[in-house]
């Protein structure tokens, strides 16, 4: 097992290095000028040139990358061109807010997806199956942005049950776990949970239906095992695949959703990326992308490590 973990860690290293290259270079591929973040639109050429020099943007791109990577390895992602604040503090405060939102949305999506999927798999071909399948198709197909707006119009504007935007009455820095704050989470987390819910429902449904048709389930039933005992075996056998799919979905949510966070003015990584992209704030964009990608790499590594613990066959390969 130890060798397996080491191997996975070793595989993760080149991926991480590639991620740094992509995070840094992608930003250069987009049209626009990072100095737009600080210079007014009508800034004359001499002001632009002076700024380029002040921010080191006049150096060759590989040199900029080398310096950036060296500082990143020491935990310094530079400072935001637009705000002057440290990128690390900007990203981590946003990551905290996104984790809060994505955690709730993931929990909701995985829980509802597993329950609906299991029900649909058990009642394969029946009314429950059709309803769950329809719901999952809607969940996967519906645009986040549109759903967020519709939910806001119904539950915030018309009914006045939940706030339309924000991360608490005093902002995310004053967060506490009481209803006054938690109500700010309801609409964005429901909006965000719909896609993972749909995907997990479909995955679980297919796996459970497939599993129930396997010979070992017939054998278990022939031995007189009850419904719950059979379910435990089915659940254990479907878990590794569900875990892998859920891991990807959770990773996707942790990356923040630019659209959902913008619709709800939720100060997470998606909102931060949105700001950074439109301002061409390169250090902030590069730092945020790097942290999110590393998070994804870490999460996949974690799933790779956890999977053999559940299904030892996977660790042997």
């Amino acid at each position: 097992m130890f060798a397996y973990i080491l191997k996975r860690l070793f595989y993760a290293l080149p991926i991480a290095l590639s991620v740094t290259v992509v995070s840094f270079m992608l930003v250069y591929l987009a049209p626009g000028d990072p100095l737009n973040a600080i210079a007014p639109a009508d800034a004359p050429a001499d002001v632009i040139e002076a700024l380029k020099s002040a921010y080191g943007l006049d150096r060759p791109v590989p040199v900029q990358y080398g310096l950036w990577l060296w500082r990143a390895l020491q935990g310094d992602l530079g400072t935001s061109i637009a705000s002057g604040r440290s990128v690390v503090s900007e990203v981590f405060s946003a990551v905290g807010n996104t984790l809060l939102l994505a955690g709730i949305a993931s929990g909701l999506g995985v829980l509802v997806g597993c329950v609906l999927g299991a029900l649909a798999g058990y009642k394969h071909g029946g009314g429950v199956d059709r309803a769950a399948t329809a719901l999952s198709v809607v969940g996967v197909s519906i645009p986040h942005y549109w759903l967020g707006l519709v939910l806001t119009i119904i539950f915030s504007t018309w009914l006045g049950w939940f706030p339309a935007m924000g991360a608490g009455p005093g902002g995310s820095t004053d967060w506490s776990w009481d209803w006054e704050h938690v109500r700010y989470l309801v609409l964005p987390s429901v909006t965000l949970s719909v896609i993972p819910m749909g995907i997990i429902t479909r995955t679980v449904r297919a796996l459970v239906a497939d599993m129930l048709a396997q010979e070992f389930v017939v054998a278990l039933r022939a031995r007189g095992l009850g419904g719950m005992a059979v379910f435990r075996h089915v659940a254990k056998n479907t878990a590794p695949t569900v875990l892998a799919v859920a891991g990807l979905q959770v990773g996707y949510l942790m990356g923040g959703s630019i659209l959902v966070e913008t619709v709800f003015a939720w100060p997470g990584t998606g909102f931060l990326l949105n700001t950074a992209i439109f301002q061409r704030d390169m250090p902030l964009l590069q730092g945020t992308l790097l942290v999110l990608c590393m998070f994804f790499v870490g999460l996949n590594l974690l799933v790779d490590i956890v999977q053999p613990l559940i299904d030892p066959r996977m660790g042997r390969g």
Partner: peptide, 17 residues
Amino acid sequence: MPIPDAMTRANALLNGQ
């Protein structure tokens, strides 16, 4: 309060935020 999305701004006003 920065609310870049115009529709969200309108909803926040209608909602009393």
